[in-house]
Amino acid sequence: MINIVFFAQLREQLKSDGLTLTIATPCTVADVQQAVLKKHPQWRDFLANPALMCALNQDIVPLDAQVLDGNEVAFFPPVTGG
């Protein structure tokens, strides 16, 4: 089971703050993204945006980072704090 969370503008666009998915692991963050899109194809315009950032277990990672069962994967727009 992978816990997937969305934040900020992406959360509003998807009208969802996240979901859990059971997928074969180990896989990559990109695989998780594709699995979400398979379940929610209407999210493609927003979730397939190459400008999005992703985090794995609360660390910023590239799309090819390895995901294990029980991990948390986050997708969000570029950060704008400070």
Partner: peptide, 13 residues
């Protein structure tokens, strides 16, 4: 400050 602006998960609306 420069790192915070690019790597800490905050979003301003």
């Amino acid at each position: 400050m420069d790192y915070l602006k690019k790597q800490a998960p905050f979003w301003k609306k």
